[in-house]
């Protein structure tokens, strides 16, 4: 039932989602920690910018990215100055776009978990002589791990489900930018409804399984701080 092109699309999507999730955790956990602790007047601004993809239509984000990544756009100029290829129509470009697009889905659950933890465990650790770095890795991270797991699952799933932005900046290249959602779209447009049904069914089962696992997991741990697409 699955063609070679379908399998390529599935493999590419999993690769994209994995890379994006790892980058999102690297970027999202420190960001969430900063947002939890900071008294900065920039807090609201940063929070709002991170949450933008939740409310912006993917076409807006995709359009801005396409223009920004073009040879006359800021990202395009940067890449040219660095002697690199343009980001549009490349796997790297999709990674950049997906990180922006899925950032709130990672930052918010982690931030919720860190806030739920409170300052008490940190004070205790400090009184026992733990340094800032030590406290972060041995107290903060373990205590917010349920939120981090939720964030990883949501970031991964949201990247798998991405469509509008990829369509705008991807250029439909097999093995580089043609992800499952675009492949399904192509099947529908080409009236290959049989193929479309197979892939769409896989996506439906995958999404359900992920959310089911997430809710089951969160049902057991009440302080995981799950907010699917919601503000904290």
């Amino acid at each position: 039932m699955l063609s070679a092109a379908d399998l390529t699309a599935i493999w590419l999507t999993l690769k994209l989602a994995t890379v994006v999730t790892l980058l999102l955790l690297l970027l999202g956990i420190p960001l969430a920690w900063w947002l939890t602790r900071t008294q900065s007047r920039w807090k609201s601004t940063v929070s709002a910018v991170i949450a933008l993809p939740l409310v912006l239509p993917p076409t807006v984000l995709g359009f801005y990215l396409l223009v920004a990544m073009g040879p006359d756009g800021p990202l395009g100029r940067l890449m040219t100055a660095l002697g690199l290829e343009l980001l549009s129509f490349s796997f790297t470009g999709l990674v950049v776009a997906s990180v922006i697009y899925s950032l709130p889905f990672v930052v918010q659950p982690v931030q919720n978990a860190m806030q739920a933890m409170g300052t008490r465990p940190l004070e205790v650790a400090a009184s026992l002589g733990a340094g800032a770095c030590d406290r972060f890795f041995t107290v903060v991270l373990p205590l917010s791990s349920p939120g981090i797991l939720t964030a990883a699952i949501l970031g991964f799933a949201h990247t798998v489900g991405e469509f509008g932005v990829v369509l705008m900046i991807g250029g439909n290249i097999p093995g580089a930018t043609r992800v499952i959602s675009v492949q399904i779209y192509d099947h529908v447009e080409a009236l290959e409804y049989g193929h479309a049904h197979t892939l769409a069914g896989i996506m439906l089962l995958f999404s359900f399984a992920v959310l089911f696992a997430l809710y089951t997991f969160n049902g057991r741990r009440r302080h995981a701080g799950l907010s699917v697409g919601g503000l904290p």
Partner: peptide, 20 residues
């Protein structure tokens, strides 16, 4: 070197923004 638009409007957009 091919990049494909889902329709001719998108194809024009790729070229007009200079991305292609």
């Amino acid at each position: 070197h091919w990049v494909m638009g889902e329709n001719i409007s998108q194809t024009w957009q790729f070229a007009s923004t200079g991305n292609a």
